[in-house]
Amino acid sequence: MMPMKLEDLLRTKPVFVNVGVRSFGDSLREAGYQVIHVDWSPPAGGDQKMAELLDDLL
C-alpha cells in the first residue's frame, strides 16, 4: 500500500486504527470518524525475545 503523505492526510477525513485504550477510538467514532479497533494484547504473551523474532518473520 502506498502511504498517504502527511499533507494529503490533512486534506482528507482520516480513517483510524486504534490500538490500546478503547476510549481513544470511541471518542473519534462519536465524532463521526471511522475507527477500527485492534483487540491488542502483549505480543508473544509479553515475551520480548519472541516479539523481536516475530518482527523478523511476520
Binding site: 483510524f16 486504527v17 477500527i36 485492534v38
Partner: peptide, 28 residues
C-alpha cells in the same frame, strides 16, 4: 466481524486506514 488482533490485520480489513492511534504500555 471480529476485531482484528494486529495493526496489519486491521489495515487488511480496512485498507483506507490512514492513522494509527497507539496507547499500549510503553514497552510495547
Amino acid at each position: 466481524a471480529p476485531e482484528p488482533r494486529s495493526i496489519a490485520e486491521a489495515v487488511t480489513a480496512r485498507p483506507e486506514s490512514s492513522v494509527a492511534v497507539i496507547s499500549v504500555p510503553g514497552e510495547y
